[in-house]
Amino acid sequence: MTDQKPFVDIRNAQKSYGSLEVLKDISLQVQRGQIVAIIGPSGSGKSTLLRAINDLDPLTGGEVWLEDMQINRKLPHRQYEAHINQVRQDIGMVFQHFNLFPHLSVRGNITLAPRLLKHLSEAEANALAEEQLEKVGMLDRIDYFPSRLSGGQKQRVAIARALAMKPKVMLFDEATSALDPELVDEVNQVMKKLAEEHMTMIIVTHEMGFAESVCDRVLFMDQGVVVEEGPPEVIFRDPQNERTRNFLRKHLEGSNR
């Protein structure tokens, strides 16, 4: 497995805001179909790393590759824009606060990008929306506006919206953190289903139980570095690093309260 060419390849990622170093030389390789969880305390740089992958927060150093293409390569502005818009079609992203478009119906949210970027006809786009909504169990809400959906429903629609672009990778940035506890499971179920379909996923999460049950690999980050990484049974059951142990212990206390 290790000699296989990585699908997503982050090489020596560095990111600073002024004198604040947020990512300090991070490397991460993800194989096709792999599911990687990133855990760590608040401010450790998890979101920054995830958002570097689709260049939402451009790195100040290092490279990001998807298959044989360097995502953050140096190009003149116009060419770079065209390049990045193309690359982003292949990278789905799901946000903590859903970011559904409130002026569009569920259908409109899902069909906007495919119609605009892949020039689908209305009928094709509708079929696509129905297919994706079926997958996340939201087909009966296709003509609702986001304001009438619960948090869990919004997040499932947001996932369907990302999937409608047929991405090669899905990035999740604390997809369930903004949800009421009783709504977390419906979103987790959808993510599990994607895992079963062998979607390549990188998941920033605070839910250790979920990370343990679906992920192939777990990264523990602290202060801009990867402190420890390995299979979930090692990271969660037998962490080698002191900082990892401290973090997990504190986290356990926090969630048992």
Binding site: N54, L56, E81, N85, Q86, R88, Q89, I91, G92, M93, F95, H97, N99, L100, F101, L112, A113, L116, L117, A158, R161, A162, M165
Partner: peptide
């Protein structure tokens, strides 16, 4: 977050502005 979501889907700066 609205612009971010639109750009993440692959919309250009102007498309995100106009449609979202």
């Amino acid at each position: 977050g609205q612009t971010e979501a639109a750009r993440t889907l692959g919309l250009s700066r102007w498309q995100a502005m106009r449609k979202v």
